[in-house]
Nucleic acid binder design. Sequence first.
DNA 1: CTTACATGTGCACAACGTACACATATCAGT
DNA 2: ACTGATATGTGTACGTTGTGCACATGTAAG
Lengths: 213, 213
Amino acid sequence: MTTGLGDSPARASYRHGDLRRALIEAGVDLAGEGGPSAVVLREATRRAGVTPSAAYRHFADRQALLDAVCSSCQALVARAIEADQARIHTTDATDAARLRFRAVGTGYLRFALEEPGRFQTAFSASSDLESATSSARAGERGLTPFQLLTVALDDLVTEGLLSTEHRPAAEFLAWSAVHGLAELFIDGPLRALPDPVKQTLITRVIDMVEQGL
Amino acid sequence: MTTGLGDSPARASYRHGDLRRALIEAGVDLAGEGGPSAVVLREATRRAGVTPSAAYRHFADRQALLDAVCSSCQALVARAIEADQARIHTTDATDAARLRFRAVGTGYLRFALEEPGRFQTAFSASSDLESATSSARAGERGLTPFQLLTVALDDLVTEGLLSTEHRPAAEFLAWSAVHGLAELFIDGPLRALPDPVKQTLITRVIDMVEQGL
DNA sequence: CTTACATGTGCACAACGTACACATATCAGT
DNA sequence: ACTGATATGTGTACGTTGTGCACATGTAAG
Protein backbone atom coordinates (compact mmCIF):
# COMPACT_ATOMS: atom_id res chain seq x y z
CA MET A 1 0.00 0.00 0.00
CA THR A 2 1.35 3.35 -1.01
CA THR A 3 0.45 5.43 1.98
CA GLY A 4 0.58 8.69 0.15
CA LEU A 5 3.37 9.83 2.43
CA GLY A 6 5.54 12.10 0.44
CA ASP A 7 2.51 13.88 -0.85
CA SER A 8 2.25 17.37 0.42
CA PRO A 9 0.26 17.55 3.65
CA ALA A 10 -1.16 14.06 3.18
CA ARG A 11 -4.85 14.59 2.74
CA ALA A 12 -6.71 14.98 6.01
CA SER A 13 -9.58 12.93 4.78
CA TYR A 14 -9.81 9.89 2.59
CA ARG A 15 -11.77 12.15 0.30
CA HIS A 16 -9.89 14.79 -1.53
CA GLY A 17 -12.37 17.59 -1.38
CA ASP A 18 -12.22 18.89 -4.87
CA LEU A 19 -10.18 16.49 -6.92
CA ARG A 20 -11.67 17.60 -10.19
CA ARG A 21 -10.44 21.14 -9.71
CA ALA A 22 -7.08 19.94 -8.39
CA LEU A 23 -6.54 17.79 -11.48
CA ILE A 24 -7.38 20.64 -13.80
CA GLU A 25 -5.02 22.94 -11.95
CA ALA A 26 -2.23 20.39 -12.09
CA GLY A 27 -3.01 20.01 -15.77
CA VAL A 28 -2.75 23.72 -16.37
CA ASP A 29 0.61 23.71 -14.59
CA LEU A 30 1.82 20.83 -16.74
CA ALA A 31 0.58 22.61 -19.84
CA GLY A 32 2.64 25.61 -18.87
CA GLU A 33 5.72 23.47 -18.44
CA GLY A 34 5.51 21.47 -21.63
CA GLY A 35 2.44 22.16 -23.72
CA PRO A 36 -0.49 19.84 -24.36
CA SER A 37 1.55 16.66 -24.58
CA ALA A 38 2.87 17.31 -21.08
CA VAL A 39 -0.63 17.11 -19.68
CA VAL A 40 -0.17 13.57 -18.47
CA LEU A 41 -2.97 12.03 -16.49
CA ARG A 42 -0.74 10.09 -14.10
CA GLU A 43 1.41 13.10 -13.35
CA ALA A 44 -1.64 15.21 -12.66
CA THR A 45 -2.95 12.64 -10.18
CA ARG A 46 0.51 12.43 -8.63
CA ARG A 47 0.51 16.17 -8.03
CA ALA A 48 -2.97 15.96 -6.61
CA GLY A 49 -1.72 13.25 -4.24
CA VAL A 50 -4.02 10.63 -5.57
CA THR A 51 -4.02 7.35 -7.48
CA PRO A 52 -4.25 7.42 -11.29
CA SER A 53 -7.58 5.61 -11.23
CA ALA A 54 -9.11 8.34 -9.11
CA ALA A 55 -9.05 10.65 -12.08
CA TYR A 56 -11.60 8.45 -13.81
CA ARG A 57 -14.22 9.41 -11.26
CA HIS A 58 -14.10 12.92 -12.71
CA PHE A 59 -13.01 12.51 -16.31
CA ALA A 60 -13.96 9.90 -18.86
CA ASP A 61 -10.38 9.68 -20.07
CA ARG A 62 -7.23 11.68 -20.57
CA GLN A 63 -8.81 13.62 -23.43
CA ALA A 64 -11.63 14.78 -21.19
CA LEU A 65 -9.09 16.09 -18.70
CA LEU A 66 -7.19 17.77 -21.50
CA ASP A 67 -10.40 19.37 -22.73
CA ALA A 68 -11.03 20.84 -19.30
CA VAL A 69 -7.44 22.07 -19.08
CA CYS A 70 -7.84 23.54 -22.54
CA SER A 71 -10.90 25.47 -21.41
CA SER A 72 -9.01 26.85 -18.42
CA CYS A 73 -6.19 27.94 -20.69
CA GLN A 74 -8.61 29.70 -23.01
CA ALA A 75 -9.92 31.57 -20.01
CA LEU A 76 -6.34 32.74 -19.41
CA VAL A 77 -6.17 33.97 -23.00
CA ALA A 78 -9.38 35.90 -22.42
CA ARG A 79 -7.83 37.50 -19.33
CA ALA A 80 -4.72 38.48 -21.28
CA ILE A 81 -6.89 40.20 -23.87
CA GLU A 82 -8.93 41.92 -21.19
CA ALA A 83 -5.74 43.13 -19.54
CA ASP A 84 -4.57 44.77 -22.76
CA GLN A 85 -7.98 46.30 -23.30
CA ALA A 86 -8.04 47.65 -19.76
CA ARG A 87 -4.93 49.69 -20.45
CA ILE A 88 -6.77 51.85 -22.96
CA HIS A 89 -7.52 55.41 -21.86
CA THR A 90 -9.29 57.42 -24.50
CA THR A 91 -12.28 59.66 -24.42
CA ASP A 92 -12.88 59.33 -28.12
CA ALA A 93 -15.26 56.44 -28.65
CA THR A 94 -14.11 55.75 -32.19
CA ASP A 95 -10.50 55.61 -31.15
CA ALA A 96 -11.40 53.42 -28.20
CA ALA A 97 -13.15 50.92 -30.43
CA ARG A 98 -10.17 50.73 -32.72
CA LEU A 99 -7.77 50.25 -29.84
CA ARG A 100 -9.96 47.65 -28.19
CA PHE A 101 -9.94 45.73 -31.44
CA ARG A 102 -6.17 45.90 -31.68
CA ALA A 103 -5.86 44.90 -28.04
CA VAL A 104 -7.55 41.60 -28.87
CA GLY A 105 -4.63 40.88 -31.13
CA THR A 106 -1.87 42.16 -28.88
CA GLY A 107 -3.28 40.42 -25.80
CA TYR A 108 -3.66 37.18 -27.70
CA LEU A 109 -0.11 37.32 -29.02
CA ARG A 110 1.39 38.54 -25.77
CA PHE A 111 -0.07 35.52 -24.03
CA ALA A 112 1.22 33.24 -26.79
CA LEU A 113 4.73 34.56 -26.27
CA GLU A 114 4.64 34.67 -22.48
CA GLU A 115 2.95 31.31 -22.00
CA PRO A 116 3.59 29.22 -25.09
CA GLY A 117 2.74 25.94 -23.40
CA ARG A 118 -0.59 27.09 -22.06
CA PHE A 119 -1.36 28.90 -25.29
CA GLN A 120 -0.82 25.79 -27.36
CA THR A 121 -2.91 23.83 -24.93
CA ALA A 122 -5.71 26.37 -25.14
CA PHE A 123 -6.19 25.56 -28.79
CA SER A 124 -5.08 21.94 -28.87
CA ALA A 125 -8.39 20.27 -28.23
CA SER A 126 -10.74 20.27 -31.17
CA SER A 127 -13.48 22.70 -30.36
CA ASP A 128 -16.38 23.75 -32.47
CA LEU A 129 -18.15 27.07 -32.59
CA GLU A 130 -20.48 26.24 -29.71
CA SER A 131 -17.76 25.31 -27.29
CA ALA A 132 -15.91 28.46 -28.34
CA THR A 133 -18.56 30.29 -26.38
CA SER A 134 -18.66 28.03 -23.34
CA SER A 135 -18.44 29.87 -20.08
CA ALA A 136 -15.64 27.66 -18.81
CA ARG A 137 -13.43 29.42 -21.32
CA ALA A 138 -14.39 32.94 -20.37
CA GLY A 139 -12.40 35.63 -18.62
CA GLU A 140 -13.53 38.12 -16.00
CA ARG A 141 -16.12 39.72 -18.21
CA GLY A 142 -17.58 36.30 -18.93
CA LEU A 143 -16.49 36.36 -22.55
CA THR A 144 -14.30 33.85 -24.36
CA PRO A 145 -11.43 35.05 -26.57
CA PHE A 146 -13.65 34.45 -29.57
CA GLN A 147 -16.46 36.48 -28.08
CA LEU A 148 -14.13 39.33 -27.16
CA LEU A 149 -13.08 39.47 -30.79
CA THR A 150 -16.68 39.40 -31.99
CA VAL A 151 -17.64 42.24 -29.68
CA ALA A 152 -14.64 44.28 -30.76
CA LEU A 153 -15.62 43.85 -34.40
CA ASP A 154 -19.22 44.80 -33.70
CA ASP A 155 -17.96 47.96 -32.05
CA LEU A 156 -15.89 48.73 -35.13
CA VAL A 157 -19.07 48.59 -37.16
CA THR A 158 -20.91 50.77 -34.66
CA GLU A 159 -18.17 53.37 -34.92
CA GLY A 160 -18.21 53.21 -38.69
CA LEU A 161 -14.69 51.81 -38.89
CA LEU A 162 -15.90 48.66 -40.59
CA SER A 163 -18.67 48.47 -43.15
CA THR A 164 -21.52 46.08 -42.50
CA GLU A 165 -20.72 44.65 -45.87
CA HIS A 166 -17.33 43.46 -44.70
CA ARG A 167 -18.47 42.48 -41.22
CA PRO A 168 -19.59 38.88 -41.86
CA ALA A 169 -16.95 36.31 -41.04
CA ALA A 170 -14.50 39.10 -40.18
CA GLU A 171 -13.70 37.34 -36.91
CA PHE A 172 -12.31 34.41 -38.81
CA LEU A 173 -10.11 36.56 -40.99
CA ALA A 174 -8.71 38.43 -38.02
CA TRP A 175 -8.36 35.30 -35.96
CA SER A 176 -6.57 33.48 -38.76
CA ALA A 177 -3.91 36.13 -39.11
CA VAL A 178 -3.23 36.53 -35.42
CA HIS A 179 -3.43 32.85 -34.61
CA GLY A 180 -1.17 32.00 -37.50
CA LEU A 181 1.46 34.42 -36.32
CA ALA A 182 1.28 32.91 -32.88
CA GLU A 183 1.92 29.46 -34.33
CA LEU A 184 4.87 30.69 -36.35
CA PHE A 185 6.27 32.28 -33.20
CA ILE A 186 5.80 29.30 -30.92
CA ASP A 187 7.08 26.38 -32.91
CA GLY A 188 7.31 27.72 -36.37
CA PRO A 189 10.28 29.22 -38.16
CA LEU A 190 9.96 32.53 -36.33
CA ARG A 191 10.70 30.99 -32.97
CA ALA A 192 14.24 32.30 -32.73
CA LEU A 193 13.51 35.88 -33.71
CA PRO A 194 14.62 38.56 -31.22
CA ASP A 195 11.78 40.03 -29.28
CA PRO A 196 11.76 43.53 -30.83
CA VAL A 197 11.41 41.98 -34.28
CA LYS A 198 8.51 39.92 -33.01
CA GLN A 199 6.84 43.05 -31.69
CA THR A 200 7.22 44.71 -35.06
CA LEU A 201 5.66 41.72 -36.77
CA ILE A 202 2.76 41.80 -34.34
CA THR A 203 2.08 45.41 -35.21
CA ARG A 204 2.34 44.73 -38.91
CA VAL A 205 0.02 41.74 -38.84
CA ILE A 206 -2.60 43.73 -36.96
CA ASP A 207 -2.11 46.56 -39.44
CA MET A 208 -2.66 44.13 -42.25
CA VAL A 209 -5.87 42.87 -40.71
CA GLU A 210 -7.17 46.36 -40.00
CA GLN A 211 -6.45 47.44 -43.55
CA GLY A 212 -7.46 44.24 -45.28
CA LEU A 213 -10.74 43.56 -43.54
CA MET B 1 11.77 -15.99 -32.14
CA THR B 2 9.31 -14.03 -34.19
CA THR B 3 10.09 -15.26 -37.68
CA GLY B 4 8.63 -12.29 -39.40
CA LEU B 5 6.03 -14.52 -41.01
CA GLY B 6 2.91 -12.48 -41.42
CA ASP B 7 4.96 -9.61 -42.66
CA SER B 8 4.37 -8.95 -46.30
CA PRO B 9 6.73 -10.82 -48.60
CA ALA B 10 9.16 -11.64 -45.78
CA ARG B 11 12.30 -9.82 -46.71
CA ALA B 12 14.48 -11.71 -49.17
CA SER B 13 17.58 -10.70 -47.32
CA TYR B 14 18.31 -10.28 -43.69
CA ARG B 15 18.96 -6.68 -44.61
CA HIS B 16 16.00 -4.60 -45.49
CA GLY B 17 17.42 -2.64 -48.36
CA ASP B 18 16.24 0.81 -47.53
CA LEU B 19 14.75 0.74 -44.09
CA ARG B 20 15.21 4.43 -43.52
CA ARG B 21 13.03 5.29 -46.48
CA ALA B 22 10.52 2.58 -45.58
CA LEU B 23 10.16 3.96 -42.06
CA ILE B 24 9.62 7.47 -43.33
CA GLU B 25 7.02 6.26 -45.80
CA ALA B 26 5.22 4.31 -43.09
CA GLY B 27 5.42 7.43 -40.97
CA VAL B 28 3.88 9.57 -43.68
CA ASP B 29 1.07 7.03 -43.99
CA LEU B 30 0.50 7.10 -40.26
CA ALA B 31 0.54 10.88 -40.31
CA GLY B 32 -2.16 10.80 -42.95
CA GLU B 33 -4.29 8.49 -40.82
CA GLY B 34 -4.01 10.29 -37.51
CA GLY B 35 -1.75 13.31 -37.54
CA PRO B 36 1.61 13.70 -35.83
CA SER B 37 0.68 11.78 -32.68
CA ALA B 38 -0.14 8.76 -34.83
CA VAL B 39 3.45 8.60 -36.05
CA VAL B 40 4.34 5.81 -33.68
CA LEU B 41 7.79 4.33 -33.97
CA ARG B 42 6.76 0.77 -33.21
CA GLU B 43 3.93 0.84 -35.73
CA ALA B 44 6.23 2.21 -38.41
CA THR B 45 8.70 -0.62 -37.83
CA ARG B 46 5.83 -3.10 -37.86
CA ARG B 47 4.74 -1.85 -41.27
CA ALA B 48 8.30 -2.05 -42.49
CA GLY B 49 8.40 -5.65 -41.27
CA VAL B 50 11.15 -5.04 -38.80
CA THR B 51 11.85 -4.98 -35.09
CA PRO B 52 11.34 -1.73 -33.16
CA SER B 53 15.02 -1.54 -32.31
CA ALA B 54 15.95 -1.56 -35.97
CA ALA B 55 14.66 1.98 -36.27
CA TYR B 56 17.42 3.18 -34.00
CA ARG B 57 20.01 2.34 -36.65
CA HIS B 58 18.53 5.13 -38.76
CA PHE B 59 17.01 7.57 -36.31
CA ALA B 60 18.27 8.78 -32.97
CA ASP B 61 14.82 8.57 -31.48
CA ARG B 62 11.16 8.91 -32.30
CA GLN B 63 11.50 12.66 -32.67
CA ALA B 64 14.16 12.23 -35.34
CA LEU B 65 11.81 9.98 -37.28
CA LEU B 66 9.01 12.47 -36.84
CA ASP B 67 11.28 15.24 -38.11
CA ALA B 68 11.99 13.28 -41.26
CA VAL B 69 8.30 12.53 -41.75
CA CYS B 70 7.60 16.20 -41.21
CA SER B 71 10.04 17.12 -43.97
CA SER B 72 8.37 14.68 -46.33
CA CYS B 73 5.00 16.15 -45.51
CA GLN B 74 6.27 19.66 -46.21
CA ALA B 75 7.42 18.45 -49.58
CA LEU B 76 3.83 17.34 -50.21
CA VAL B 77 2.65 20.82 -49.31
CA ALA B 78 5.12 22.24 -51.82
CA ARG B 79 3.73 19.93 -54.48
CA ALA B 80 0.17 20.99 -53.71
CA ILE B 81 1.18 24.62 -54.18
CA GLU B 82 3.02 23.81 -57.39
CA ALA B 83 -0.05 21.98 -58.66
CA ASP B 84 -2.23 25.03 -58.13
CA GLN B 85 0.34 27.26 -59.75
CA ALA B 86 0.61 24.94 -62.74
CA ARG B 87 -3.05 25.45 -63.49
CA ILE B 88 -2.48 29.10 -64.30
CA HIS B 89 -2.71 30.03 -67.97
CA THR B 90 -2.19 33.70 -68.60
CA THR B 91 -0.11 35.61 -71.05
CA ASP B 92 -0.13 38.74 -68.94
CA ALA B 93 2.94 38.64 -66.71
CA THR B 94 1.42 40.89 -64.07
CA ASP B 95 -1.69 38.82 -63.83
CA ALA B 96 0.37 35.66 -63.70
CA ALA B 97 2.41 36.94 -60.78
CA ARG B 98 -0.73 37.81 -58.88
CA LEU B 99 -2.30 34.42 -59.57
CA ARG B 100 0.88 32.57 -58.66
CA PHE B 101 0.88 34.39 -55.36
CA ARG B 102 -2.73 33.48 -54.69
CA ALA B 103 -2.03 29.89 -55.69
CA VAL B 104 0.44 29.63 -52.83
CA GLY B 105 -2.46 30.26 -50.51
CA THR B 106 -5.02 28.09 -52.25
CA GLY B 107 -2.61 25.19 -52.68
CA TYR B 108 -1.56 25.41 -49.04
CA LEU B 109 -5.15 25.44 -47.83
CA ARG B 110 -6.35 22.81 -50.28
CA PHE B 111 -3.72 20.47 -48.94
CA ALA B 112 -4.68 21.32 -45.37
CA LEU B 113 -8.29 20.37 -46.08
CA GLU B 114 -7.55 17.29 -48.17
CA GLU B 115 -4.82 15.89 -45.96
CA PRO B 116 -5.30 17.32 -42.49
CA GLY B 117 -3.16 14.70 -40.79
CA ARG B 118 -0.20 15.16 -43.06
CA PHE B 119 -0.63 18.92 -43.01
CA GLN B 120 -0.51 19.03 -39.23
CA THR B 121 2.48 16.78 -39.27
CA ALA B 122 4.24 19.00 -41.78
CA PHE B 123 4.29 21.80 -39.26
CA SER B 124 4.41 19.87 -36.02
CA ALA B 125 8.15 19.64 -35.59
CA SER B 126 9.78 22.83 -34.47
CA SER B 127 11.72 24.12 -37.41
CA ASP B 128 13.69 27.31 -37.68
CA LEU B 129 14.26 29.46 -40.72
CA GLU B 130 17.21 27.43 -41.95
CA SER B 131 15.41 24.12 -41.97
CA ALA B 132 12.49 25.84 -43.69
CA THR B 133 14.73 25.89 -46.73
CA SER B 134 16.10 22.35 -46.47
CA SER B 135 15.89 20.41 -49.69
CA ALA B 136 14.20 17.46 -48.00
CA ARG B 137 11.15 19.67 -47.72
CA ALA B 138 11.10 20.78 -51.33
CA GLY B 139 8.69 19.92 -54.12
CA GLU B 140 9.44 19.24 -57.77
CA ARG B 141 10.92 22.63 -58.41
CA GLY B 142 13.26 22.13 -55.49
CA LEU B 143 11.58 24.81 -53.41
CA THR B 144 10.00 24.49 -49.98
CA PRO B 145 6.56 25.97 -49.30
CA PHE B 146 8.27 28.88 -47.63
CA GLN B 147 10.51 29.46 -50.62
CA LEU B 148 7.60 29.26 -53.04
CA LEU B 149 5.94 32.01 -51.05
CA THR B 150 9.09 34.11 -51.04
CA VAL B 151 9.51 33.79 -54.78
CA ALA B 152 5.86 34.67 -55.36
CA LEU B 153 6.25 37.82 -53.29
CA ASP B 154 9.43 38.80 -55.10
CA ASP B 155 7.55 38.47 -58.36
CA LEU B 156 4.82 40.71 -57.01
CA VAL B 157 7.45 43.35 -56.41
CA THR B 158 8.91 42.84 -59.89
CA GLU B 159 5.49 43.37 -61.41
CA GLY B 160 4.90 46.46 -59.31
CA LEU B 161 2.04 44.87 -57.39
CA LEU B 162 3.85 45.23 -54.10
CA SER B 163 6.03 48.17 -53.12
CA THR B 164 9.56 47.46 -51.98
CA GLU B 165 8.65 49.36 -48.87
CA HIS B 166 6.09 46.74 -47.88
CA ARG B 167 8.10 43.79 -49.11
CA PRO B 168 10.18 43.03 -45.99
CA ALA B 169 8.67 40.34 -43.79
CA ALA B 170 5.67 40.11 -46.10
CA GLU B 171 6.07 36.34 -46.21
CA PHE B 172 5.38 36.15 -42.52
CA LEU B 173 2.24 38.23 -42.77
CA ALA B 174 0.88 36.17 -45.62
CA TRP B 175 1.93 32.93 -44.03
CA SER B 176 0.33 33.87 -40.72
CA ALA B 177 -3.05 34.51 -42.25
CA VAL B 178 -3.13 31.41 -44.40
CA HIS B 179 -1.64 29.12 -41.79
CA GLY B 180 -3.99 30.44 -39.15
CA LEU B 181 -7.00 29.71 -41.31
CA ALA B 182 -5.72 26.20 -41.88
CA GLU B 183 -5.49 25.66 -38.14
CA LEU B 184 -9.00 26.97 -37.57
CA PHE B 185 -10.22 24.62 -40.26
CA ILE B 186 -8.44 21.53 -39.07
CA ASP B 187 -9.05 21.44 -35.36
CA GLY B 188 -10.30 24.88 -34.63
CA PRO B 189 -13.86 26.09 -34.41
CA LEU B 190 -14.30 26.16 -38.19
CA ARG B 191 -13.91 22.42 -38.53
CA ALA B 192 -17.58 21.70 -39.09
CA LEU B 193 -18.21 24.39 -41.68
CA PRO B 194 -19.65 23.18 -45.00
CA ASP B 195 -17.14 23.11 -47.77
CA PRO B 196 -18.49 26.01 -49.88
CA VAL B 197 -18.29 28.29 -46.86
CA LYS B 198 -14.70 27.20 -46.33
CA GLN B 199 -13.91 28.04 -49.93
CA THR B 200 -15.39 31.50 -49.48
CA LEU B 201 -13.30 32.05 -46.38
CA ILE B 202 -10.19 30.98 -48.24
CA THR B 203 -10.86 33.57 -50.92
CA ARG B 204 -11.57 36.26 -48.38
CA VAL B 205 -8.44 35.58 -46.36
CA ILE B 206 -6.30 35.75 -49.46
CA ASP B 207 -8.11 38.94 -50.45
CA MET B 208 -7.32 40.35 -47.04
CA VAL B 209 -3.67 39.52 -47.40
CA GLU B 210 -3.44 40.92 -50.89
CA GLN B 211 -5.09 44.13 -49.82
CA GLY B 212 -3.44 44.46 -46.43
CA LEU B 213 0.13 43.74 -47.36
C1' DC C 1 -28.37 2.16 11.99
C1' DT C 2 -28.28 0.43 7.76
C1' DT C 3 -28.27 0.87 3.05
C1' DA C 4 -26.96 3.23 -1.16
C1' DC C 5 -23.92 6.05 -3.47
C1' DA C 6 -19.75 8.66 -4.45
C1' DT C 7 -15.07 8.61 -4.46
C1' DG C 8 -10.40 6.82 -3.86
C1' DT C 9 -7.14 2.43 -3.78
C1' DG C 10 -4.65 -1.65 -5.71
C1' DC C 11 -3.60 -4.31 -9.20
C1' DA C 12 -3.37 -5.68 -13.87
C1' DC C 13 -2.63 -5.23 -18.80
C1' DA C 14 -1.34 -3.65 -23.32
C1' DA C 15 1.24 -0.23 -25.86
C1' DC C 16 4.90 2.84 -26.25
C1' DG C 17 9.90 4.65 -26.38
C1' DT C 18 14.31 3.10 -25.64
C1' DA C 19 18.66 0.64 -24.09
C1' DC C 20 21.82 -3.20 -24.60
C1' DA C 21 23.83 -7.49 -25.81
C1' DC C 22 23.93 -10.41 -29.61
C1' DA C 23 23.70 -12.07 -34.53
C1' DT C 24 24.41 -11.64 -39.24
C1' DA C 25 25.17 -9.43 -43.67
C1' DT C 26 28.37 -6.61 -46.40
C1' DC C 27 32.62 -4.51 -47.57
C1' DA C 28 37.99 -3.40 -47.26
C1' DG C 29 42.33 -4.81 -47.34
C1' DT C 30 45.47 -8.23 -47.36
C1' DA D 1 39.68 -16.08 -50.89
C1' DC D 2 40.19 -15.12 -45.99
C1' DT D 3 39.70 -11.96 -42.26
C1' DG D 4 38.32 -8.31 -39.73
C1' DA D 5 35.70 -4.16 -39.24
C1' DT D 6 31.45 -2.08 -39.80
C1' DA D 7 26.56 -1.65 -40.73
C1' DT D 8 22.21 -3.29 -39.83
C1' DG D 9 18.58 -6.17 -37.78
C1' DT D 10 17.00 -9.38 -33.58
C1' DG D 11 15.67 -10.46 -28.75
C1' DT D 12 14.90 -9.12 -24.49
C1' DA D 13 14.11 -6.03 -20.89
C1' DC D 14 12.79 -1.82 -18.31
C1' DG D 15 10.21 2.17 -17.12
C1' DT D 16 6.17 5.04 -18.29
C1' DT D 17 1.64 5.83 -19.96
C1' DG D 18 -3.57 5.24 -20.40
C1' DT D 19 -7.14 2.50 -18.74
C1' DG D 20 -10.32 -1.31 -16.73
C1' DC D 21 -12.03 -3.71 -12.65
C1' DA D 22 -12.63 -5.46 -8.08
C1' DC D 23 -12.48 -3.64 -3.64
C1' DA D 24 -12.52 -0.31 0.27
C1' DT D 25 -13.97 3.62 2.51
C1' DG D 26 -16.04 7.90 3.43
C1' DT D 27 -20.80 10.51 3.16
C1' DA D 28 -25.53 10.97 2.94
C1' DA D 29 -30.58 9.21 3.02
C1' DG D 30 -34.02 6.36 4.77
